[in-house]
């Protein structure tokens, strides 16, 4: 189990690195799907099968499909790869990497400095999640629905006037 976790974690990190470094949009997307699937497996290992399923269905399934549609609409062909290469000079990586490294260092310090716990992970069944969702978190569900509605309207509005806005 532990070994599986580390292998999956390695896959997730490597594929994510490829996501942010790849020059071709569709390839980057496919790497992101791999990363998401690895993450789903980690969820499963951590005892959250329901979350794992949702990660695959909604993230890897629905959201990524949206991205692919947009990439198709924008027609990001070989020309853009060249453009991306020009944009990605080695010097560009320095600052952000430093920032992220510092942040990582800080948080890892916090995690490690806290009492290390050895309790084994426990599986949490979807039933518990559902009970909790519609019990104490009911207001959160309402808020989420209020967030989704503007998302729907916003997406509709943004996509609607494309042809008219064309210069």
């Amino acid at each position: 189990m532990e070994l599986l976790f580390y292998i999956t974690a390695g896959v997730a990190v490597l594929s994510t690195v490829r996501v942010i470094t790849h020059l071709h949009a569709v390839h980057a997307l496919l790497y992101l799907v791999v990363s998401l699937m690895a993450l789903a497996l980690i969820f499963y290992i951590l005892g959250a099968p329901f979350a794992a399923a949702l990660e695959i269905i909604i993230y890897a399934g629905a959201i990524m499909v949206l991205f692919i549609f947009v990439v198709m609409l924008l027609n990001q062909g070989p020309l853009t790869v060249e453009q991306e290469r020009r944009w990605l000079t080695p010097r560009m990586w320095l600052g952000p990497s430093l920032l992220a490294l510092l942040l990582l260092g800080e948080v890892v310090f916090i995690i490690v400095a806290a009492d290390t716990f050895t309790v084994e992970t426990v599986g949490i069944q979807p039933k518990q999640v559902g009970l909790s969702l519609y019990g104490p978190y009911l207001i959160g569900v309402e808020l989420a629905s209020m967030l989704l509605l503007p998302g729907l309207i916003g997406a509709y509005h943004m996509g609607r006037r494309l042809s008219k806005e064309e210069p």
Binding site: F5, A9, V70, V71, E84, L88, L99, L103, V108
Partner: peptide
């Protein structure tokens, strides 16, 4: 142990995302 390492992994992913956000000029 696993959960701790998962947290570190989460932070790694977050940091990679942050690097990507700052480095890439393409909005996508």
């Amino acid at each position: 142990m696993l959960a701790t390492h998962a947290l570190v992994l989460a932070m790694l992913l977050f940091g990679l995302g942050l690097i990507g956000l700052l480095v890439r000029r393409n909005v996508l």
